[in-house]
Every structure is written in structure tokens, then in C-alpha cells.
């Protein structure tokens, strides 16, 4: 149950091979899904093309609920990639986890706070970047930090950090908790024959629920990304 991580040190910076491996696997899977689904595109969509188009329209709907499409359209690719990347990453740890010599190799990459916080910081940085790009330095500073009331300035600063933290840690917490519980159920299943029988139903239930949570969290992440973007980019809200 107590897993070590395959850490390494390079140029005085730490890393975790299992995270990097799982990120690579996630990237590969998402790429293959999207690549295979968009081969042989047709005017009358069939099969996987329908699915991908549904995802596109879904993200388009999320964006449209926050911006008008003219300003929000450029975030479409970001949104779709986020949705698929996070959903796949969330689900990867569900069917099994692999540990070798007490070192955990296979898990959800999003069950690691470093990765989710990286994504969250990236989103927040992007939102600031696009805010400056859309309004200019002065408009961005006034709109972001001095509205609606100048005396709320300290709170606005805190809000930026709180947004980043909650965005990253919400995802991490949900997925990590799911993996921990799955680990506990798996521990019960391997303890005895009796425990195995007892663990079947909870394991299936929790895996189903984790699948659901994985999807929901991916959706929430994309939704909040677009909300933060629109707060910075849109002039009226």
C-alpha cells in the first residue's frame, strides 16, 4: 500500500519518472483517439467523427456560455485538448495500478498535485496574457485589480492565487481520493478470498463513480478555464 515514487534528480531539479511516463501515455492515447477519429473525414459524419464533432460542439457550448464566439473562438483548440487530456488522464488510473518493487509506476497523472498545479498555473498565466493582449496594460490592470471597487485590491490579488490553487487542487483531490479508495478496495480484495468477494461490488461501484468523476472534473476544469479567461478578456460581465 505504501508506494514509493521513482524520483530522480537532474541539474539540481527533481522529477518523477512515473509522472512523466503517464503523461506520455496520456498524450499518446489522446493523440491516437483524435488522430484515428479524424481520418477520412466526411460531410456526412459517421462513427468516431460524430463523437469528435460532439466534443467540439460541447466545448464550443462551454465557450459560448462565457464569451461571444468571436473572442472565444481562439480558445477552442485549448478547450478541446484540455477536455480530452484531463478526461483520459483521470481515467487512466482506474482499471489498474502497477507497482514494481514497491515503486508505483501506473496511475492517473492527474493524481499528482505537481501536474494539476502546472496545468492550473498555465491556465491562469494564459488568462493574464490574453487579458493584457485584449485590453492593453492599463485596461487590464484597472479591470482586473481595481474593479468593481479600488479598496478590494488586496482581495483581488488573493483571488488570483486562490483561483490557481482551487483549479489545480480540485482536480488533484478528486482523482487522488478516487485512487486511494480504489487502492484500499484492491487491498481488501487481495487480503483473502472472503475479502475478494466482498470487494467486487464496491470496486465496480467506485470505478463507475470514478469514471463519472473523471469526466465531470475534466468538464469543470475546462469550464473554469473559460470562466477565468472571460473574466480577463471580456470587457463586460
Amino acid at each position: 500500500m505504501e508506494h514509493k515514487n521513482p524520483t530522480f534528480e537532474l541539474f539540481g531539479m527533481y522529477g518523477n519518472w512515473s509522472n512523466i511516463l503517464m503523461l506520455a501515455v496520456t498524450t499518446l492515447i489522446v493523440f491516437l483517439i483524435a488522430f484515428i477519429a479524424t481520418r477520412n473525414l466526411k460531410m456526412k459524419p459517421t462513427g468516431m467523427q460524430n463523437f469528435m464533432e460532439w466534443i467540439m460542439d460541447f466545448v464550443k457550448g462551454i465557450i459560448k456560455s462565457n464569451f461571444d464566439w468571436k473572442t472565444g473562438g481562439r480558445f477552442h483548440v485549448l478547450g478541446i485538448t484540455f477536455l480530452m487530456f484531463i478526461a483520459v488522464a483521470n481515467v487512466l488510473g482506474l482499471p489498474f495500478s502497477i507497482s514494481y518493487d514497491g515503486v508505483l509506476w501506473w496511475k492517473s497523472p492527474t493524481a499528482d498535485p505537481t501536474i494539476t498545479m502546472t496545468l492550473a498555473v498555465m491556465v491562469i498565466m494564459l488568462s493574464h496574457y490574453y487579458g493584457i493582449k485584449a485590453k492593453g496594460m492599463k485596461g487590464y490592470a484597472v479591470d482586473t485589480y481595481l474593479k468593481p471597487m479600488p479598496f478590494l485590491f488586496p482581495l483581488k490579488i488573493i483571488e488570483e492565487f486562490a483561483n490557481t490553487l482551487t483549479l489545480g487542487l480540485r482536480l488533484y483531490g478528486n482523482i487522488y481520493a478516487g485512487e486511494v479508495l480504489l487502492g484500499l478496495i484492491a487491498g481488501l480484495a487481495t487480503s483473502s478470498a472472503f475479502g475478494f468477494v466482498g470487494a467486487i461490488i464496491p470496486a465496480m461501484a467506485w470505478q463507475g463513480f470514478s469514471l463519472f468523476i473523471g469526466g465531470i472534473q475534466a468538464f469543470i476544469f475546462v469550464m473554469l478555464t473559460m470562466v477565468y479567461m472571460s473574466h480577463k478578456v471580456s470587457t463586460d460581465h
Binding site: T7, F8, L10, M13, Y14, G15, N16, N19, I20, L23, P109, D112, T114, I115, M117, T118, L119, M122
Partner: peptide
């Protein structure tokens, strides 16, 4: 310490 490589890999 922070896993900087993980962050970089994620990005």
C-alpha cells in the same frame, strides 16, 4: 523540493 521536471514534462 518541487518536482520541476514533472512540471516541465506536463507543459
Amino acid at each position: 523540493g518541487l518536482n520541476i521536471w514533472d512540471s516541465l514534462a506536463t507543459l
